Simulated scan of single mutants.
Amino acid sequence: MQLIKENTESQLVKSLLIIFIGSIILTVSAKIKIPFYPVPMTMQTFIVLFLGISFGYKIALATVSLYLLEGILGLPVFSNSPERGVGLAYFTGPTMGYLIGFLSACFLASLVKNDDNYFLIFFKLIFSVSTIYIFGILWLGTLIGWDKPIFTLGVMPFLVAEIFKICLLTLITKKIIKLRKFI
Rank of each mutant, 00 (worst) to 15 (best):
M96C: 10
A161D: 09
F50M: 15
F91Q: 08
L68C: 13
L69Y: 04
L66V: 04
F122M: 07
A62G: 09
M96N: 09
T63K: 09
T92S: 11
F91N: 11
S110R: 00
G74W: 15
V64G: 05
K58F: 02
G93K: 06
V129E: 12
I121N: 04
F78E: 10
F151P: 00
V112N: 00
E162Y: 05
L88D: 06
A89D: 14
L125M: 06
A109F: 01
A89Q: 15
N80W: 03
I100D: 01
T95V: 10
L138Y: 06
T95Q: 14
E70K: 13
L169K: 07
R84T: 09
L153S: 01
G141D: 10
G56E: 09
F122Q: 10
I134S: 08
M156W: 11
L169T: 08
F135T: 11
F127K: 02
A89P: 07
A89H: 14
Y118H: 12
F123Y: 11
P149D: 11
G74P: 12
A105H: 07
L125Y: 08
I166C: 11
L108V: 12
P149S: 02
G85A: 13
F151R: 03
G136V: 14
A105S: 12
T142M: 10
M96T: 08
N117V: 08
L69H: 02
F107M: 04
P82K: 12
L61K: 04
A161K: 10
K148V: 06
A161Y: 05
W139K: 03
F78C: 12
A62Q: 03
A161T: 00
S81K: 14
L68P: 06
L153V: 04
G154Y: 06
I59M: 10
I163W: 00
P149Y: 06
L120M: 09
I132W: 01
T131F: 14
G97V: 01
I166D: 02
V160M: 14
N114L: 15
G85N: 13
M156Y: 15
Y67L: 13
F122C: 02
